[in-house]
Structures are given as C-alpha cells and as structure tokens.
Design a protein around this nucleic acid. Structure first.
Length: 107
DNA sequence: AACCTGACTTCGG
DNA sequence: TCCGAAGCCAGGT
C-alpha cells in the first residue's frame, strides 16, 4: 500500500478497542518498521489532539505509562481506569488481560 | 545548517 | 540475564 508510516500508525491507534491497550513496539511493527517505536511516540505527541486519537491506550513494553507524573501520567491512568483497566501494585497493566493484538483485526 | 531531543524498543556482546 | 548502543526521524534551537 502507498500509505506512510505516519498514516498507518494513526490508523492502527484508532482501531485499539475500548478497554484494551497496545505498545509502541507493536504499533511500529504493524505500521511496517519494528524499530520505529520512537516515531510512534512522536506521532502521538504531534497529532493525538487534532486527529482525536485514543492516545491513552498506548503504553510501553513493560505495561506502564510512559508519561511523567505531572505531565500527563495521572490523566492517562484515569482514562484507562475509566475503561475498566486495572493496574497492579507496581502500576503495571496485565497484558494477559488487556493487551490488544493489531494483527487480530486482519482476520 | 548542524545539533539536540524525545509518550521507545530491539540488538549484540 | 544484563546493559550500552543503535535505530528511528520530525521539530525545536
């Protein structure tokens, strides 16, 4: 397809279902470059607002929120909790229950 | 016009 | 297993 990495990233983020999360690496891989996780972060930073992306459903590979406290961490955690996602005692999300696999939607 | 900086992850020793 | 380096690339300075 003649779709840019940037566009693919936005497309797949919009497809993350409510109550699920995906990681930067997964999204990068799905968009065609498994080592471009930082670009996924950049896409979120630059266009999550104007394109109304469910930005809060993207977390890091440890199942943790990457934003720093007082710079969005609390906001993201609150949004996820509102969707029914639970955090363990170490503030991690259990992937067994909440990780979404982008490739599932191709079926 | 270089150089730095990230909402990160994978790779190789 | 662990840890530094590499990969990624648009914006800001």
């Amino acid at each position: 397809m003649n779709t840019s990495f940037h566009q693919k990233v936005k497309y797949v983020i919009k497809k993350i279902p409510r109550g699920k999360v995906a990681t930067y690496g997964q999204i990068a891989a799905f968009a065609g470059n498994h080592r471009a996780a930082r670009q996924v972060a950049w896409v979120l930073h630059s266009s999550s607002r104007k394109d109304k992306l469910p930005w809060h459903r993207v977390v890091n590979s440890e199942g943790r929120i990457s934003l720093r406290p007082n710079y969005g961490y609390e906001t993201q955690k609150e949004l996820l909790k509102k969707e029914g996602i639970k955090f363990d005692e170490n503030d991690r999300i259990d992937f067994k229950n909440y990780l979404w696999d982008p490739w599932m939607m191709l079926q």
